[in-house]
Design a protein around this nucleic acid. Sequence first.
RNA 1: GCUCGAAUGGUGAAAUGGUAGACACGAGGGACUUAAAAUCCCUUGACCAUUGCGGUCGUGCGGGUUCGAGUCCCGCUUCGAGCACCA
Length: 919
Amino acid sequence: MEYNHREIESRWQRQWRESEIYKVSTDPSKPKFYVLDMFPYPSGAGLHVGHPLGYIASDIYARYKRLQGFNVLHPMGYDAYGLPAEQYAIQTGQHPEKTTTVNIARYRSQLDKIGFCYDWSREVKTCDPEYYKWTQWAFQQMFGHYYDIAADRAMPIDALVAHFESRGTEGLQAAAGKDLEFTAAEWAALDEKAKSDVLMNYRIAYLGHTMVNWCPKLGTVLANDEVSEGLSIRGGYPVEQKLMYQWCLRVSAYAQRLLDGLERVDWTDSLKETQRNWIGRSEGAEMRFKVAGRDLDLEIFTTRADTIFGVTFMVLAPESAYVDMVTADECRDAVRAYLDEVKHKTERERMIDKKVTGVFTGSYAINPLTGKQIPIWVSDYVLAGYGTGAIMAVPAHDSRDYAFARHFDLPVIPLIEGADVSESSFDAKSGRMINSEGPELNLNGLEVKDAIAATKRFIAEKGLGRVKVNYRLRDAIFSRQRYWGEPFPVYYKDGIPHMLPADQLPLQLPEIDQYLPTESGEPPLGRAKNWQTADGCPLELNTMPGFAGSSAYYLRYMDPRNNDALVSPEANGYWRQVDLYIGGTEHATGHLIYSRFWNKFLYDLGTVCEDEPFRKLINQGMIQGRSNFVYRIKDTNTFVSAGLRKDYDTTPIHVDVNIVNNDVLDLEAFRAWRPEFATAEFVLEDGRYICGYAVEKMSKSMFNVVNPDDIVERYGADTLRLYEMFLGPLEQSKPWDTNGIDGVNRFIKKLWKLYQDSDDSQPSAANLKTLHTLIKKVAQDIENFSFNTSVAAFMICVNELTAQKCRSRAVLEPLAVVIAPFAPHVAEELWHSALGHDTSVVDAQWPAHDEKHLVEAEVTYAVSFNGKARYNITVAADADAETVKAVAMAHEAAEKWTGGKEPVKVIFVPGKILNFVIK
RNA sequence: GCUCGAAUGGUGAAAUGGUAGACACGAGGGACUUAAAAUCCCUUGACCAUUGCGGUCGUGCGGGUUCGAGUCCCGCUUCGAGCACCA
């Protein structure tokens, strides 16, 4: 019988669907395993061959775990809210929901063809009201909680109100926007609006006046991770800083826990490092400098407390509240002019333009250690949003301060022995301190590290400041001036925001006539009719950002149809957390921070039992496109093969990779491709037209998009799955190159052939060795996510068994099970038709390898002495006399080297053959 | 600038400190065939030798540890990724 992938695959996929074989339920009698893919945004372009890479890897792992007897949760869904559908809606008037539905259907059919073992009964879509009810619910919970620093967790806002009522802010330790101070009496005297404003300062989801990334072109604000180098990630439009009244999430309150949690998860070091950078913890000191002649302290943050003797000036951020307080009357005009100048620069201009600018305020601060007066300046190189918005400048040991000092001719005092500060600052945190002696503190001769500690101790004792930890991580801006997102379950009464009652959730997204802002500049929801509560209070017009829906979806899969809770305690208690999460690195500082934050908040609430959502995370590499080129001779319609092009003056033209095979152009298909090539002539080499190639992003405009459907149609899903794994290490980025897929396809055909005429004969020792080598290798490889070497192992195994003319069911049966995670359709077919089982291979047991079949073939002699050197000499079990003699000599030599004093151990372990020469 | 990765044939890549280049593609040669496709076999890191055997060099560069280094350590080079007036 011929291997017919079309027939086999459609038949088995139907079978799996009809028997609901991949449906799972909570089953406390079995150990659980949760394998998750980052769910896709269903874009209009559909899937290309790069998308399924991670899905195939997770599918292999899920199937493997299932064969090992685990109850595997392996769901899929859609991150359905997003800008492209909305942009498309603006252009065409088509409702984004319609576009999204069409795209989801397309994704589903593409995914189905690859043969994944998803439990589709658990599918979630973020735009589904049944789903976003719980996104809205979580938001309301965040509104109803504050972060208690002493308890190190979120607490109900009622507890905060109770605290205010009894003690005001006395003894309060809570994450807040501003440090407020009031008494219980003052709190009681506040009106409702004022109380609401105070509570906003503490809520985890809060309305705040913050500097936001405003993108005029997209007409919306963006989160920090949606902006790079002053441009929006999506579209690449300029982004400005703008002060707006927006919903925010107090992610910063969780900064330390987000950092600590990284110690407990099994992620790659580089991803953890990326998150650590993003959180940006820095330990330092907050210190007060008196302003000369005024009753005012400047509070600054520094990580280099040791350099305090080298402070020669102070700098304030232009937006700092200090600026107005310290500016002397005679300098007021100059300062105001400077502030105006700075304000008109965009963030991007400020970044590109590294010119040193600044203005003197006319005031002086007093260095608390030397008592000397130092000038206070304003400059835009100091950021308002970090630390206190004011710094002590140490030009000798900070390159930015150095540039400023040189530009304005301010003094530079070196503080580290041997540091040459004539050309540039010495920024390294190492060396011995000099010039650092004052009346009360002497740091001279100390190492920088010790000097920092000594200074911190000193300022804490003298009450000059305190040890302080700062984080770069900012609160997440949670409002979007967009239509296609979750509506906020919020209404306003007398200008005070209130949450809709829980029984009115979900608040459904209303219909509107156009997907644009209103004439008065309000977000699109301003167009909705009757967008108000029953008693006429207006509802919030903003919608939630993309990350809202994706922050807890992994929890919803545990209990997707529960209408009373995001997830029941039973379901969450069983599935707990994602054991394996596979997705791209592009979410490192977005989704993977937000969902960890979201999860920690739900953990504080007691909704979930695990503090970290994703135990192990693998980042699959990006698949790049491999573009092909033809070379047109200038001003002709003649194309010259790549190898001959240097003899002509040519222009390279992208050619559709789908009409090129192994870089050989299909001439007829090329002529038919576009009208202007219908009359194309060719200059061939060896009778063929060879195309050039380049690695580029996979995109329509490069004509290098390869659709998985085409590969499945031509070679079958199993070939696609094996080939994507064979392409290289999972975590590495690589170009898609269809060259080589034939090799994998050949392997499947050989596998198929091996199973024809299977019988009940006894397997030979060689058969068993081949089989057990494979079982051992593949199990190891799957655990290490080294799928490419597994595929190689399959090829070796099948080649060997073919050469051995193995027909034995005792070998073929476990072989089918081992191959099943990788090539499920063909494994299933062979399991039934050739081996005669009437159950699914999915229900089989993963075979254990038996060391005895491997050991007897080869033996390694490991000779160690001195507890140090170690020689492994491996010889075949049936080794000739000469080899055995060599081993004996090695043993003897080892004993001689040790002088017979050290024990010589000879260990027998299985391994490969090594030729060892004794000199 | 700081942090983290990576570098091996014509190509994708393998190698718990122990035969470098598994496996595959491509290429060359051969078998089968009227022919092609399909299939199968041989060769394929470089150089030298070649009627036999074989020999030398070789994992970005320079050092080091080790009986032994692609692998470990130190110092570079190049490329990629993340962060970046973050004090």
